[in-house]
Simulated assay, not measured.
Amino acid sequence: MTRGMLWLLAVACGVAVGNVYFPQAVTPLVAEGLRLPPDRAALVVTAAQIGYACGIFLLVPLGDRVPYRPLITTLFTVTGSGLAVAGFAPSFGPLFAAGVAVGVATVIAPIIGPMVAGMVAPERRGAASGTMLAGSIGGMLLARTFSGAVGEWLDWRAPYLMAAGLAFVMAVVLWRALPKTKPHTRQSYPDLLREPLRLLRNEPELRRSCFYQAMIFGAFSAVWGSVALLLTGPAYGYGAQAVGLLALVNAATMVATPVAGRIVDRYGSDPVNLVCMLAVIGSAVVLAFGATELVALVVGTLVLDVAMQSGMVANSIRMYALSDTHRGRLNTAYMTCAYVGGAVGSWLGVQAYTRYGWRGVCGLVALMAVAALARHAVAIRSRSPSRQPSPRGRS
């Protein structure tokens, strides 16, 4: 794993993940272009996340069964085709369906992550995973900024069509650059689909990582699924480009995640998880002032982004340590739970905004972080020395 290959794969993660997030910046333009209520147009974000969760469950296990090069390049090709269909969608129904299809196919980052983890030394997994996550974050941020700016300049269809072209380019580049690999297993596809469920049942540390990320990513999605409604609404009156600029301010997250990876390599996942959960609660307090203060909105989203992404590094490293040969299936269980939490959080965030305004969204963020923190407290308490059986009891 050369440094050049590592960064190429980080870019591939960013291009793939960006397809899930760029609709967040163009939902007001979709509402205007298709003459939809804003809350219904916001469902295009939920569509991508629903599709992503389904794709993780259905396709990511193939990373253990199919060589990486044909699998990744095929997924990029299908993603590009789905984005092109979305760009020409005449109404909400086809756009929603194409968004789900794109979400299903663009599950490339969860396949690249286990691949990279298997190609680097164990003591470098945290740093390498942080680099992959930095690429994904860059894709998230730039996709929102790009789609907001291009959407206002042209229309909401342009970001979909440009993203389609970029996906086709990545398919060609990776077909030429990726090394040939051998599959980890010859299990049948039905067995591969059952394996993540078995792992969830048998691995308590996997369940813990899944719950943490589902709650924190749900809080993150609640904010980013509804912030476009706030910025383009009467409180601020900005255009769709403002959502992208807000995301671009949070580019500091790209620096934070490799650092978080090195901290996890040194101190373990639990201390990083604890700090991240507390930071999400703090971000909810700051974001509450963002209903009318732009500075609070910027600071709050920055803290939230850094906390969510750093927590993802910590949870991923805990999960990868469970097995050297089941990483794809472990990642399937983990990422499916995370994106189910994200889809639910995105939907709940829009509902909270519609009924209670921006501070209702902030309350939802705090509630989800508190749930993760309570689970973490139970895990730490159960491992404390005072609760371990005595030597006599063990005998």
Rank of each mutant, 00 (worst) to 15 (best):
P114A: 13
V313P: 00
L364R: 01
R392Q: 09
A352H: 01
A25K: 01
L133Y: 08
G99E: 06
V286I: 10
L197M: 06
Q213H: 15
V17K: 01
P114H: 05
A42N: 12
L248E: 09
P234K: 09
T332F: 00
V223L: 14
A163L: 13
L373F: 11
W156I: 08
R194H: 07
G82I: 09
T185M: 12
C13I: 09
T181R: 11
L367R: 10
R327H: 01
T257Q: 15
S384H: 09
M115F: 14
F146G: 01
V78N: 08
F88H: 13
V85Q: 01
P204V: 02
C54K: 10
Y356I: 04
R318Q: 06
W153L: 14
G55K: 13
W358L: 11
L287D: 03
W153N: 03
T77V: 14
R394D: 12
M115L: 11
L304I: 06
R65Q: 05
G393E: 14
I317F: 10
L322E: 08
V295T: 15
A379L: 11
P114Q: 13
I380R: 13
A242D: 05
P389W: 05
V272H: 02
G93H: 12
G360R: 05
F76T: 12
D191H: 15
V78T: 15
C337T: 10
G225Y: 00
G300Y: 03
L174V: 13
A41M: 09
R266F: 01
N331V: 06
C362P: 02
V102A: 10
A12G: 07
P389D: 13
A369M: 05
L348I: 00
V150E: 09
L230E: 05
T185R: 06
V116A: 06
T131N: 10
L154M: 11
L367I: 08
T354A: 10
G103E: 03
F22C: 04
L197S: 04
G360M: 13
Y189K: 13
L133M: 07
P159M: 08
P110M: 03
G357L: 08
V303H: 00
Y212R: 12
I108L: 04
I108W: 02
A333I: 04
R176K: 15
A117I: 03
L302P: 07
P385Y: 08
V172Q: 08
P271E: 01
Y212Q: 09
V78L: 15
A288E: 05
P114Y: 08
A321W: 00
V66A: 08
A97S: 08
D39Y: 10
S395E: 15
A167P: 15
